[in-house]
Design a protein around this nucleic acid. Structure first.
Lengths: 169, 169
DNA sequence: TTAATTCAGACAATAGATATCCGAATAATA
DNA sequence: TATTATTCGGATATCTATTGTCTGAATTAA
């Protein structure tokens, strides 16, 4: 049981996008450089975010990524589901239907107790992540960071952020 | 993000062990056959359970596995942790220390907000699983199963379950 | 129209999970 | 008490999913 590394990267990238001024975007390469991670793989995660409607992309010259929704409407679960897939981590293989005492399929319309317990636990996991939005994260960062670090961030952003073209996919 | 198939098998195996009469055990091969899964891999999961103190094993002739504790003291989280490892699924790689605006290690004593949110979500997951014991599962099974299925199970168990020798590791 | 710059999907390398085997240990039996 | 059959336990291959990389398609500004 492990969560893909891409989820971490995507979450940090989304948090950074939230920090840039309205109407501006960052290209994938800049996001990767900021976080010190391989650019192509970071791009892959960003593509997943776009597919899920979390980010908006502009192609061509002066293209890049920006958030597609207000920060308080994007949760960590949204990002996790976009990158790692929304499916359940525990997949019941119905082994209760196997072996000498196997149940018949028509008696297995309800999930087995074990699968149900895991489904419930995963729901609790999702609910917990869904309670944290990018806006929440931003608030905590501003509160907890050293002032000079915030300044460095803003300097870097204003140097790298390009005004995006109007049309965006 | 996926939970190992072995967790499912181990959980079902433990639930079955809970069903057998006091003082009797099942060998790994029988547990595998009951569930229609490869015996060596099932054995691997059972070994993990033994290492974690969930099952007791007897080697040699008439050996086998039995539960090491009362069923209400064994939770699904215990089994999951034994098989899949107790470590966190989300592993923070501290990418906030990378790149042009990377933080210095001495400013990173507290986990970052994203890692903290995932840790909290995983705690909710664990708590949910820890709330379900083998005894709970057994009660539900008895309530929900067809009588003839319960009968078949008990017949099979009494045919396969051997009295364990006294000494057990 | 051109050319630069970007995203997007297809393609290897690697780590982890899956499945298997053989040796060590134990207890019943002769 | 020695033997032997039977069992678990850890070390060993295979296979899938994740990680990482690449080249081509699309778009926009000049």
């Amino acid at each position: 049981m492990q969560i893909s590394k891409g989820v971490e990267w995507a979450a940090h990238a989304a948090a950074l996008l939230n920090g840039l001024p309205a109407g501006r975007g960052l290209k994938a390469e800049a996001l990767a450089r900021y976080h010190g991670v391989p650019a192509p793989y970071m791009a892959k995660q960003l593509q997943a975010l776009s597919k899920a409607g979390i980010t908006q992309t502009s192609r061509g010259a002066h293209g890049g990524y920006r958030l597609a929704k207000p920060a308080d409407e994007i949760t960590l679960w949204d990002i996790t589901a976009a990158v790692d897939g929304p499916g359940p981590a525990f997949r019941c293989t119905e082994i209760r239907q196997n072996g000498p005492c196997g149940l018949k399929p028509e008696d297995c319309k309800r999930p087995c107790q074990i699968a149900a317990a895991f489904a419930s636990a995963e729901q609790a996991f999702r609910d917990s992540l869904a309670a944290v939005s990018l806006a929440d994260l931003a608030g905590q960062v501003v509160r907890d960071s050293e002032p000079d670090h915030l300044l460095a961030m803003m300097n870097w952003l204003s140097a790298e952020a390009d005004p995006l073209s109007e049309k965006s996919a």
